Amino acid sequence: FPVEIGKQTLVLGIGRDITERKRAEEALRESEERLKILFEFAPDAYYLNDLQGKFVDGNKAAEEITGYTREELIGKNMLELKLLPPEQIAKAAAALARHAHGKHAGPNEFALNRKDGSQVPVEIRAFPVEIKGQTLVLGIARDISERKRAEEEMRESEERYRNLFDSTHDMVQSVAPDGRLVFVNQVWLETLGYTEADLPSLNLFDIIHPESLSHCQELFSRVMAGESLDHVEATFVAKDGRPTVVEGHVTPRLAGGGVVATHGFFRDITERKRAEEERK
């Protein structure tokens, strides 16, 4: 701005070093670019929607899994696009209600209706996020077709062999990667005193004696990595609290290119171990 100094009119300028600010702006821009690339090329379907369920953005995987282009998705919600079957809409609405209260939802399984009329099973996790002062929902949808196919193959296989397993004198169990007991035979139930009704609430590690727990967890990890184990000895806990010593072998159940369960075949050796102790 002009200033008078004596008989001269001069222009006074004020400069400020903004090197740090420009450096910070450039770092922010680079960070946003990296995040944009991660979002766009993530292998799972990433999408953003508002609290009314309207899509705000989506990545390439979201386009592939739904069959819709990003332009077709943005501004519409799942109901308009009929992405979910009617019986699953209530579950989706419950998830949105959680987001409105700042809570995450999932993992939840849905059957996604694609644009071409086909269905794909997906597992969705969703998290409320704040972007430019607006609360949005970041959803991550994973195609679980292969996993569901492997589970179905395993179920059919277990059904085929159920009669065979029930006729054996050994305890037979099949365990999922998370420790759920997928199948046990009648001898297993009778030996440990459980019923079929008990199974949904049982985990493998619930029925292992504390003294065997760390050993069995290590063996389970090895089998899930593809190893077959012979001469396995462990102590189970019966429903009434009795320790039951067993020995046998455990093998991995392969499907879809990976290990989907473990198969264990055991024999109750409690009496034999007791007799050995008495002879000492």
Rank of each mutant, 00 (worst) to 15 (best):
F1V: 10
V3W: 00
Q8D: 08
T9W: 09
I18E: 05
I18F: 02
T19I: 08
K36L: 09
K36I: 04
K36Y: 07
L48H: 05
K54T: 06
V56G: 01
D57E: 09
N59Q: 03
G67F: 01
G67D: 03
T69N: 04
L73N: 00
L83Y: 12
K91R: 14
A92Y: 10
R98F: 01
A100L: 08
H101N: 13
G102H: 11
N108K: 12
E109K: 15
A111S: 15
A111N: 15
K115C: 04
P121A: 00
F127M: 08
P128K: 01
I131L: 06
G133R: 05
L136V: 02
A141S: 15
R142S: 06
D143Y: 09
E152L: 01
E152W: 08
R162E: 11
V172C: 04
D178M: 10
F183K: 11
Q186S: 12
E190N: 04
G193Q: 13
Y194H: 08
Y194D: 11
A197W: 00
D198M: 08
L199Y: 04
S201L: 10
Q217T: 11
E218R: 15
R222S: 05
R222K: 07
R222G: 00
S228L: 05
S228A: 14
F236E: 03
K239C: 02
D240P: 01
P243T: 09
T244P: 03
V246Q: 00
H249L: 10
H249D: 13
A255M: 05
V259L: 13
H263F: 15
R267D: 05
I269R: 07
R279P: 00
